[in-house]
């Protein structure tokens, strides 16, 4: 047990938790915006994957991580555009279109990657790190939590911003109404379709950003299927958070920590199947649901298209 408390173990655990948790956080926040507005983005995984690919390619060719993040966000938005056009505008089934986005993104990104790189997987240079002043000097915590890509700090700011947006802005309340009683929002003179479209594009951007971070900063390479279920965890986080961004962050930290735990344990020389640790967060969440999940936690209009005058 002594090995568990060494500095290198704790640093790699904390650092890994942030690195693994950030894509989940970004995707979860994105999904939360959509869900508030009554849109269920089962295609979140696909949006992340497209973002991971476009983000990687942009950084690979330009060497700029910021351009990579932007391209990742744009890639995610391009996948979200399908949801916007088919599900929000035309009212097609959100779950079916979502699954097809994920399947299509898996196929298309591996196809494009194969055409460009064949079977080689080029690695990017290490992503630049910003050490926060003062905080970065704290032993263990400094290296683990406060020496990361600037995107990490921006995302934490985003959590606070979103909390404020949801609670006290016109747009935030419109989102909430679009998910709860779209007809009332329509009656109040706000365009439901436009509100939901905005929400979905935000989701696409954040999910794509998360994917780009995952490929460029977390892994440093792009491999097909790199997101491997991160989008699904994002959906789970958003649904569990019941509309509170802070809860998404806590959930992402929990999942990130359990993902990082396996690598950290290997650093500490303890051999345990990764699967055991990866089960933990899901087991905890299911236990919480069984014990306390006594009421529905999703907006009533979730997943249903809004057609004016129809009940």
């Amino acid at each position: 047990m002594q090995a568990l408390l060494t500095e290198s173990f704790l640093v790699s655990l904390l650092f890994g938790a942030v690195t693994a948790g950030l894509p989940l956080l970004l995707a979860g926040l994105g999904e939360q915006i959509s869900e508030k507005a009554g849109v269920l983005n089962i295609g979140l995984e696909g949006m992340m994957l497209v973002g991971a690919y476009t983000g990687f390619v942009a950084t690979y060719h330009t060497g700029s991580f910021w351009l990579g993040f932007l391209a990742g966000g744009a890639g995610g938005m391009s996948a979200a555009l399908i949801v916007l056009l088919l599900c929000i505008r035309r009212g097609l089934n959100q779950i079916v279109i979502g699954i097809s986005i994920t399947l299509g993104a898996e196929g298309l990104t591996s196809l494009l990657h194969f055409v460009q790189f064949s079977r080689s997987y080029p690695r990017l240079a290490a992503a630049p790190v910003v050490v926060l002043p003062a905080l970065g000097d704290i032993p263990i915590l400094g290296k683990g939590l406060f020496s990361h890509s600037p995107l990490v700090y921006l995302t934490v700011i985003l959590v606070a911003t979103l909390t404020w947006v949801f609670r006290s802005t016109y747009f935030g309340l419109s989102l909430e109404a679009a998910g709860n009683t779209p007809a009332a929002l329509d009656a109040a003179g706000v365009d439901v379709v436009r509100t939901r479209s905005c929400a979905v594009m935000c989701t696409g951007f954040l999910a794509g950003l998360g994917g780009a971070y995952m490929a460029n900063v977390g892994a440093g390479i792009f491999v097909p299927f790199i997101t491997s279920g991160a989008g699904v965890i994002g959906i789970v986080l958003a649904m569990l958070a019941r509309g509170r961004p802070l809860m998404v962050m806590i959930g992402a930290a929990l999942f990130g920590a359990s993902l990082a735990m396996t690598t950290a344990l290997q650093v500490a020389g303890i051999d345990i199947p990764t699967d055991v640790v990866q089960m933990l967060p899901f087991a905890v969440v299911m236990a919480v649901l069984v014990l306390f999940g006594r009421h529905s936690m999703l907006p009533p209009a979730l997943g249903t298209p809004y057609v004016r005058g129809e009940r």
Partner: peptide, 30 residues
């Protein structure tokens, strides 16, 4: 959870799926 408390089954089945695939691996390996 769905029948009694109306908990959305998309989220619970997805989570049970993750749990199940990991559990299958644990059973095989250990």
């Amino acid at each position: 959870l769905k029948a009694r408390y109306g908990v959305n089954e998309i989220i619970t089945t997805l989570m049970m799926s993750f749990l199940g695939t990991s559990l299958a691996n644990v059973l095989i390996k250990l």
